[in-house]
Nucleic acid binder design. Sequence first.
DNA 1: ATCTATTCCTGGCTGC
DNA 2: TGCAGCCAGGAATAGA
Length: 258
Amino acid sequence: MPELPEVETIVRGLRPWLEGRRIKRVECLCPRMARGDLARIEGRRIQNFRRHGKFILADCEGVFLAIHLGMTGKLLLEGDPGRYTRVVFTLEGGVLLFDDVRTLGRVEVAARLPARIARLGPEPLAIGPEEFIERLGGRRGRVKPLLLNQTFLRGIGNIYADEALFRAGIHPRTAAARLSRARARRLHAAIREVLEEAIAAGGSSISDYVDATGKLGEFQFQHRVYGREEEACPRCGAAIRRIVLAQRSAHFCPRCQR
DNA sequence: ATCTATTCCTGGCTGC
DNA sequence: TGCAGCCAGGAATAGA
């Protein structure tokens, strides 16, 4: 499941090859996944290929391209189109495939950056501790669902929310606005830390994440709570618990996270 | 303005 | 061995 570190890994892998290259043809094999007229980027060069939260964005000489990988989306420079290929980008000198088993991904072409993407919260790796604490204070909900809310911070998904809360020693059900300054500061640092470590490891390969060359990430071996229900907490040895919070599973240590 | 619940989607797993 | 039923969780959307 591609979250910020996985999308960052993909973008870094693709950028050197994609940037400045002209798109000759776009074939969408799953119209449900397209927004806008994808053919509008044909004949244009890819510029400013970048990550924005979990979105992949590019300017294409006056037309805008946004890609979201959903749960199982992959952008591949190698291999042939297969059963799960949803969009084929034919570029000068090669082909970029958007494969997605579950079709929860999206490819959007628009005149400019769509407002709902522009409105997302700040980058977790760019926000400072003071601004983070201030943003937390104005929220009424619980901290875990808030971390998943892309208008609060952009790019954090279930894995890194659980891992950051564990590192900060905060229970996922804690009311966000009730966190002390010290704990909020610790959470800010934990988010940075876990995302940076995950990017360094090439992301987490849970289910079927791979980078643009088909390579698996390594960070799943460093997960301390995510997907480790019943296992011993690496800090205190207590059994990791899994609960459902806001329709999502939340993994935590009942002793370390209060 | 914010937050919560529902929907989409299919491979892989569990249990009978 | 086969199959029903459930689970995973991104964002969009509707409703509170």
